[in-house]
Design a protein around this nucleic acid. Structure first.
Lengths: 209, 209
DNA sequence: TTAGATTAATCAATCGCTTGATTAATTTTG
DNA sequence: CAAAATTAATCAAGCGATTGATTAATCTAA
């Protein structure tokens, strides 16, 4: 029973994540989510307290493991900055593409220019990921591996922005790339390897002395 | 009266653009927009027919001149691809940063993964801008100025994605850059020149043979 | 006077959420 | 063990509030 309960909650979160990504937080109604998940509407509030509670539950489910994964790369003292960069890119691309619905949802909320409790929470979490990346760059510059004139901050904008463009605006990026980036098969066979290779080449070109 | 009417409509669109950027299309109510604009709610429908009509009016007001500006750069036969790239970046950065509210609004809508009439219209317009950029790159590669191994498509993702990161997620980018990117003074003195210089350096590093 | 501009009042629809009741599962107790 | 008591899960119904939109009355200006 305990197992089934967890599965059901997980199922609701799966559906909610997709619907939020499709229609946005405001555009998605609790009736729609519960309907597509095949549960009574009151269950959302029973399990998660509120609509915002559902959103936060999706959030918490995704971030914890990802966070520690990236940190372990950043703190690994046995590899040099170039290798760290490669590893970071590989892990980041895999994760972001696999959980694209979540990242679409995430980005939509954080792009509201008016602050609120929710955006503040999201900002804090995202900044941790950003800091790991920035530390890698800073270390590489300090050690003399990377070009000291590189703009660390805007480089952050480039890696995370390029990802956002590909994942968060699928209608555009699909037209640009010539295949459906929302299709899981395309993601694994076409998008991921190409994105990784491109990003490494780009960073190498910019960061090398 | 005719003049005043135009001014009033423009004022409504200014307010609506900002409110849409702050709260998203769904999150912004017609009551809120009319309230902040100081007009009766029914005026929105009187002038623009519907909430979506307001949104589209904002859209039409912004795109036409921008479109032809970029096209004139792309079609200029008196300058080489490198110069075109520089000009494109300058114009694009200026425009996007100046009209950041509009672009936040724009990006939020296009990042809904579920298609609708609105997203289709937006997609078409955006693709025109993208195509101008891509033509410049393709021309440069063809002429031998740019590295033929460059990934044209992902380069599109990088320039537009980097911009999105800086402009559309101001809470994040402000923390990364260390100043408020929504402040107009910071935009002109700090963000624009730095963004332009960085983008040119980055593209040069990646595209040079 | 009259067409256009503006208003307050109102519409039906939908929103998130709560309720009270019912069923299913678990625990307690004799 | 089995009856009783308790808890958890699920449901249909409906709440008040808000949404975008419309109406009809009023006002303004040429």
């Amino acid at each position: 029973m305990e197992k089934e309960k967890t599965d059901k909650k997980d199922h609701i979160l799966d559906v909610a994540e997709r619907v939020f990504a499709e229609l946005g937080y405001d555009g998605a109604s609790t009736r729609m989510i519960s309907g597509e998940a095949g549960v009574n509407m009151a269950m959302l509030n029973y399990y998660f307290g509120s609509k915002e509670g559902v959103f936060l539950a999706i959030f918490e489910r995704r971030i914890s493991t990802f966070q520690s994964l990236l940190l372990s790369i950043g703190n690994d003292e046995n590899i040099n900055p170039w290798e760290k960069l490669d590893k970071y890119i590989d892990s980041y691309v895999d994760r972001v593409v696999n959980n694209n619905c979540f990242h679409i949802m995430l980005n939509r909320e954080i792009s509201k220019s008016k602050k609120n409790e929710l955006t503040d929470q999201i900002t804090d979490i995202i900044m941790k990921n950003v800091n790991v990346f920035q530390d890698i760059i800073a270390e590489g510059i300090k050690k003399g591996d990377f070009n000291k004139d590189a703009d660390q901050q805007l480089l952050v904008a480039t890696i995370f922005g390029t990802k956002s463009y590909l994942v968060n605006t699928p209608h555009i990026s699909s037209k640009v790339l010539g295949f459906d980036v929302m299709d899981q098969d395309n993601q694994n066979k076409l998008l991921k390897p190409r994105f990784k290779a491109y990003m490494k080449t780009l960073l190498k070109a910019y960061l090398q002395n």
